[in-house]
Design a protein around this nucleic acid. Structure first.
Lengths: 212, 212
DNA sequence: GGCACTAGTAAACGTGGGTTGACTTGGTTG
DNA sequence: CAACCAAGTCAACCCACGTTTACTAGTGCC
């Protein structure tokens, strides 16, 4: 086996909190956090509950205890990324949304922030987890499409839905390629180098709507 | 476990050939074929050698026998997709390459033809297999970049390399989203609906080179 | 026909990893 | 302090899966 523990120690602040023990809620959240990292970067099957537990510094049994099963934990991860997509995001214009997307893939403040996108590409094979994933992707699509001028009532704007989803696909492909492979030049490209072509792509998809 | 045998029976013509037994070369090829389907669609870990063997209709032990290990088989798959990217492809112009890319993702003759692209996103964690994957991606990138006017000697054309790779990322993201999730509207979009926005994206990346 | 060689099979082994159930620890309440 | 309960640990279980070893069955050659 080549896929050893690995993965930078994470050692986030909540590991401290957990280490001081005895708060189930904190522990649960820490488990979800660690699990999201693992699932997003390594995929469902390659991720072991023992590693997740070790990341957090607790015993494996807690995962079954709190989430019922590995798949339950995965589902909790999915639900969390679903929730995280709602918060802010008042309509906002195309320009702002594009800028936000670019910064998300290229110069995110938190280095494993873009990684979380990858979770949307991971499947456990479980139907209910997959349903959440689909729902999340579609909600995300609509949000993006709306910012570009899409409206459910306006027939002329319908192509924007597909276009928004293609924009998401592009982002996903980019992050995937940048992280999962060590391929050049993408991996070493700076945020600045990425920004220009990426903006052109996103504009081609989302800007200047009424092309037909 | 929810990820049962599944995967449409494949039942390709070479299953017939194999069934009539006693030709190691045919069997080997059939194994690689089946393995590529599995690895590409389900990933390395989720794919079991037993399933692959069952797809072909031979005994599991043959995989270890012919390829040394599961990873050896995976490596053979990678090598094959590497080889498949060479064949034809005289330089060709941007237009032609773009058209070819579009048809590859949208209206491929063989339904699991686009799936093979996904293999480039799969990792076994093995260093040597990953090296082949990286090499393949980079060769593919250069080929695409060349078609768009890139040349190793021309400093002004260097950004095209990154842009070509972003085009590949887009294709990968698209195929990934279309196959691995059942997300709407991408999954049900027709080739014709995809073609227009996809062409715009690819042109934004590869056409009208000398932007700087 | 006998012999050697290779394609393929059958069954068992070892182990990684998800899950379970009994136990321990520590804080809270009366 | 005793009693209780929730948080957390430990050890064992069990099964899926990659791999190995011993065996069977076709095929061609003398």
């Amino acid at each position: 086996m080549t896929n050893e523990p690995a993965l930078p120690p994470a050692a986030s602040l909540d590991e401290e909190l957990v280490r001081s023990g005895r708060d189930a809620d904190i522990t649960r959240r820490a488990l979800v956090r660690a699990a999201r990292r693992r699932f997003a970067t390594e995929g469902y099957r390659a991720t072991t509950v023992r590693h997740i537990a070790a990341d957090v510094g607790v015993n494996v049994a807690l995962i079954s205890r709190y989430f019922g099963s590995k798949e339950g934990l995965f589902e909790a991860c999915m639900n969390r990324t679903f929730d995280e997509l709602d918060p802010r995001t008042r309509p906002a214009g195309v320009d702002e949304v594009i800028a936000r997307l670019i910064s998300h893939v290229a110069e995110a403040p938190n280095p494993d922030d873009p990684l979380q996108l990858l979770l949307l590409l991971r499947s456990s094979g479980d139907e209910s987890a997959d349903a959440i994933r689909r729902k999340t992707l579609e909600a995300y699509t609509e949000k993006l499409a709306e910012a570009a001028g899409w409206s459910a009532d306006d027939p002329a704007s319908q192509p924007l839905l597909l276009r928004a989803q293609m924009a998401i696909a592009t982002m996903l492909g980019l992050v995937m390629l940048r992280t999962s492979t060590e391929v050049q030049p993408l991996t070493t490209a700076s945020a600045a180098e990425l920004a220009e072509p990426l903006e052109q792509v996103l504009r081609a998809l989302l800007d200047g709507v009424a092309k037909q």
